[in-house]
């Protein structure tokens, strides 16, 4: 039983890491702009597609060892999706900033449909095989079994999350972001260029989303145009669970949602003596979410309602 438990913890960590990475994008944008960026799931989806094209182009050019190719393709995906994120904010959200919160949100929904259908039309709607980036070999550990891909995902996610935390808390540019998220008006009065902070957030968030997309595609071996909306919704849930607007909250929410889902699949039938089957996984997962929100409406690590958020409500 203990090895079974351990095995399930490994699965929960792997999927939770991916949810957490995507949730970061939702939470950072919300923190500063009070905007739910519905297009964020599509950046996650675009990551593996762009990675595949870059890899194909690099292989066609030739001359580089495969490891260098992979690293270059990963960096290109991060930067290109990040730049796309900045462009989306600049042209689809910023002009609507003066028109309350509904207009940018609808614009984000539209952007999501545009990006998803662009891939659907140009590449095709069918799922495409995605090769494993790290060789996928199983390792026996304490009675459970972990694959190198799972370890790779976990390691990469932890490094990215630690890097982001250090960046936001420890650097001067990070201070801009935190200041902008605390109070837009005050920080601009203090001479912080809030628009730069916003652009930076729209670079980092989609970039991290793209990384999560590459990990996800490499883990499951496929990518498809609809994966952004399906997984994006889960990650958005994770962001709310952890407390939207809070960076550690998004990470916690991701791992927690992963754990709840795995628990719902692996232990619900055992705990209930077979009365409740695996098909109730989502019922269980979202019931937990509702319960958490009932007792902590701002999410687990979310800030409680401040004057600032009350002011923001006037926008409606």
């Amino acid at each position: 039983m203990l090895d079974y438990l351990l095995q399930q913890v490994i699965f929960a960590l792997a999927i939770g890491a991916i949810y957490g990475l995507i949730a970061l994008g939702y939470t950072m944008v919300y923190g500063v702009m009070r905007l739910i960026n519905f297009a964020h799931g599509e950046f996650f989806m675009l990551g593996p597609y762009l990675f595949t094209f870059t890899m194909a182009a690099l292989l066609a050019l030739g001359g580089l060892p495969p490891l260098v190719d992979t690293i270059v393709a990963i960096v290109v995906s991060f930067v290109a999706i990040g730049v796309l994120g900045i462009a989306v904010e600049r042209f689809a959200y910023r002009p609507l900033r003066a028109y309350g919160r509904l207009a940018p949100m609808l614009s984000a929904l539209g952007m999501s449909i545009v990006l998803q259908n662009a891939i659907r039309v140009t590449v095709g709607p069918q799922p495409v095989h995605f090769p494993a980036i790290v060789p996928n070999s199983p390792i026996e550990m304490l009675g459970g079994m972990v694959t190198t891909t799972q370890l790779g995902i976990l390691a990469a996610a932890v490094v990215l999350m630690a890097g982001l935390t250090a960046f936001v808390n420890g650097t001067r540019i990070g201070i801009w972001i935190r200041a902008a998220s605390e109070s837009w008006t005050t920080s601009s009065l203090l001479g912080i260029r809030v628009n730069r902070a916003v652009s930076l957030i729209f670079f980092i968030g989609p970039g991290l989303g793209a990384m999560a997309g590459i990990m996800y595609a490499s883990y499951y071996g496929i990518m498809q145009p609809t994966m952004g909306s399906a997984v994006g919704l889960k990650a958005f849930t994770a962001a709310i669970l952890g407390g939207i607007g809070s960076i550690p909250g998004a990470m916690l929410g991701g791992f927690l949602l992963g754990a709840i889902e795995v628990f719902g699949t692996a232990f619900l039938p055992i705990v209930s003596g077979g009365a409740v089957g695996t098909e109730y996984r989502d019922v269980f997962a979202f019931a937990v979410l509702i319960l958490v929100l009932l007792f902590k409406p701002a999410g687990l690590l979310g800030e409680t309602v401040t004057e600032e958020t009350v002011v923001a409500k006037k926008d409606y």
Partner: peptide, 22 residues
Amino acid sequence: AGTFGVNPDDVDFSALIAGIKR
């Protein structure tokens, strides 16, 4: 030995498979 329901758009079956393995 058992009947398990999944979602039509699920991609992660690992937790379920670990249960089936038992």
